[in-house]
Design a protein around this nucleic acid. Structure first.
Length: 679
DNA sequence: GAGCACTGC
């Protein structure tokens, strides 16, 4: 993955003799705690060495006897791979030998592996096969304070496993602000009632405080507030950047904004206004940083600025935890972040700019103190800061829970309401998810996983609606095509490349793949052209304005999904070769196209809409106005009934993406109960 | 004729 290159830029920050790391002084105490207590909570900042050192101490202390393995989970792929490389380097082995990592599509471990870094999502998958995670003597959950969906599910599952495996040791690592919740969660264990609750888990920070130690490796950061609120935080941020530039000593600036639009306009404003700086004065170099940029574009932020130039990086939340840039002395925090939330009543996701939490603001400020003492300019008042939420609402309380519940059911956890979540999801989210899973046929009348449909849906690494579509495909004779469509819709990120100022040509290129029936068949067309005419090469992508990274990922996902299906005993008859010599417009003839559209309806019937004379759509209930996203072929085409992959509300409008024409009658044909209930 | 923060299997 390209993200990988990005990560290599911040490895040097971790390179510090292991003996100098703050954690080294606590080695014996740590080993004692872990030996004595089933759960240990470690509080420490990035750079304390907890992630790299603790697994090595444990391995040396004999926790890998009898071939057992130490697992260390990370919320992100990049972290799992880079930390594994760092530790392998320290141990003096090759990655994949005693120290390895495992992430989706990449298993770099062997029979010799004793310390294994992996994403928390992947460890949950392992639990499907080995419910007690019995090959691990120790499981360390890193960055638990981030409270990602899979971290939360994993913590609940681990608490359950603990009761059946008293010898298992669990280590949770977290930032200070959230450590207490984690402590309470593991202390309030019914199983521990015989022991004094307080001894069931201990935090390291108390211990370190007693010894006068400091877990983090941070320099002090001066925090400054506005005296009165800013009207336009983007404009205020730009002004603040110029203030810093003209009044403060050398050092790069990091500005937190919410999205691409704001960032692009801020970068442009800085370029324009910087022209007024004295030609011999220090110059300003504005740089954007957000996930939608290509790897090459992202790499600029790590390069040293030219002489007599100060870098100012305008970034989304990607710079809060995922990407670390050295040399930042000044942070400008606008106090907002775009957060996703799921409305269980409408089933629509929203993406809106929201005030950050205190924990986020603290984390952002900390980005200024990695190299030397820094300053953080909060573009809000101190009293606004005081009224912020302590922590960001965990994902589990604001997500579509259908995938989570399907996964829990597959892990044998039937009573979702009584499952011990570290933070319980709202009942409405759980009910909505159960209803969807029931309507898809994954759950029966008793909310039990159906066999084989529900069980198989849980195993497929795609969301439930697409999983259902995939498993319906054999009966429509279009499994090969649906496999491709499932892979293409789950790549995440744009299939089409965004060239600066070449929109027209991109549109023309895109139209060459367009299929009358809609976006899904168009995606199928692009994929087929890529693997046949394009021979999976970058040149084809460049010529056709297609994103090579996304296409490569689609190839991997497709292969993985195909392996799952074959494991179920479903035969995937590849139809690709028969199309190889045809023009891209062919997707196997009109009959095949109809079978594909029917098949999609079996999974996406809940995502149906009807076009209005004005070109907008209404949902089936009729109350919600939906707009075709401009990236869809249906943006300016006529249709009657359609199904869509995704719906999201941004700003004033609700957009639907990946849209395909269907016939109204198919809805009732494939989801009779669902449409009975609706009326 | 307008635009999706971030992450994961």
């Amino acid at each position: 993955m390209a993200d990988f290159d990005l990560a290599s830029s911040f490895i040097p920050a971790l390179h510090k003799p292991a003996s100098l790391l703050p954690i080294a002084r606590h080695r014996e105490a740590l080993l004692y705690l872990i030996e004595t207590y089933p759960v240990t909570i470690v509080v420490g900042q990035t750079g304390s060495g907890k992630t790299t050192q603790i697994p090595q101490y444990l391995e040396q202390a004999g926790w890998c006897a009898d071939g057992k393995v130490i697992a260390v989970t990370q919320p992100r792929r990049v972290a799992a791979t880079t930390v594994a490389m760092r530790v392998a380097d320290e141990v003096g082995c090759k990655v994949g030998a005693e120290v390895g990592y495992s992430i989706r599509f990449e298993d770099v471990t062997s029979a010799a592996t004793r310390i294994k870094f992996l994403t928390d999502g992947l460890l949950l998958r392992e639990a499907l096969v080995d419910p007690l995670l019995s090959r691990y003597s120790i499981i360390m959950v890193d960055e638990a304070h981030e409270r990602s969906l899979s971290t939360d599910v994993l913590l609940g599952v681990l608490k359950k496993i603990r009761r059946k495996r008293p010898e298992l040791r669990i280590i949770i690592s977290s930032a200070t602000l959230q450590a207490e919740d984690l402590l309470k969660f593991f202390m309030a264990d019914a199983d521990a009632q015989a022991k004094p609750a307080a001894s069931d888990a201990l935090t390291l920070d108390e211990l370190i405080a007693q010894k006068g130690g400091r877990t983090g490796r941070m320099y002090p950061v001066d925090v400054l507030y506005l005296e009165s609120p800013a009207e336009d935080y983007v404009e205020k941020a730009i002004e603040t950047v110029f203030d810093i530039h003209t009044k403060e000593p050398d050092g790069d600036i990091l500005v937190f904004l919410t999205g691409r639009e704001e960032i692009d306009s801020a970068v442009q404003a800085i370029s324009e206004r910087a022209a007024n700086l004295h030609p011999r004065a220090q110059q300003l170099m504005p740089l954007p940083l957000y996930a939608g940029l290509s790897t090459d574009q992202q790499m600029y932020v790590f390069e040293e600025a030219p002489e007599n130039t100060r870098k100012v990086i305008f970034a989304t939340n990607i710079a809060e935890a995922s990407v670390t840039i050295d040399g930042i002395i000044y942070v400008v925090d606008t106090g907002y972040v775009k957060l996703r939330a799921y409305n269980p009543t409408t089933g629509i996701e929203t993406l809106t700019a929201t005030p950050v939490s205190k924990a986020s603001a603290v984390q952002r400020a900390g980005r200024a103190g990695r190299t030397k003492p820094g300053k953080c300019y909060r573009l809000y008042t101190e009293s606004s800061f005081q009224s912020l939420e302590e922590a960001t609402v965990p994902e589990i309380q604001r997500s579509n829970l259908a995938p989570v519940i399907l996964q829990l059911k597959a892990l044998g956890i039937d009573n979702i309401v009584r499952f011990d979540f570290i933070t319980s999801p709202p009942a409405e989210l759980v009910i909505r998810a159960l209803e969807l899973l029931y309507s898809l046929g994954a759950l029966d009348d008793y909310a039990k996983l159906t066999k084989p449909l529900g069980v198989r849906m849980a195993e497929l690494a795609v969301e439930p609606m697409m999983a259902k579509t995939l498993l319906s495909a054999p009966s429509f004779g279009c499994l090969s095509e649906i496999l491709t469509i499932a892979a293409m819709t789950s790549v995440g990120g744009n299939i089409w490349f965004q060239h600066e100022g070449e929109k027209k040509r991109m549109e023309t290129a895109r139209r060459k793949f367009a299929v009358e029936e809609g976006d899904h068949l168009t995606l199928l067309n692009v994929y087929q052209a890529f693997v046949t005419k394009g021979r999976k090469e970058a040149k084809f992508c460049h010529d056709h304005y297609v994103n090579f990274k996304a296409m490569t990922r689609a190839v991997s996902i497709r292969a993985q999904l195909k392996r799952y299906l074959e494991r179920f005993g479903l035969n995937v008859e590849e139809t690709l070769s028969s199309n190889a010599n045809k023009q891209p417009l062919s997707v196997g003839g009109p009959d095949k196209a109809e079978q594909i559209r029917r098949c999609l309806t079996t999974g996406f019937f809940a995502h149906a809409a009807k076009m209005q004379p004005d070109g907008t759509f209404r949902n089936v209930a009729g109350g919600t106005v939906l707009h075709a996203h401009p990236s869809s072929l249906m943006f300016n085409r006529k249709a009657e009934w359609v199904i869509f992959h995704e719906v999201m509300e941004t700003g004033e409008k609700i957009f639907i993406r990946d849209i395909t024409k269907i016939q109204k009658g198919w809805l009732v044909e494939y989801a009779p109960e669902f449409y009975k209930i609706q009326r």
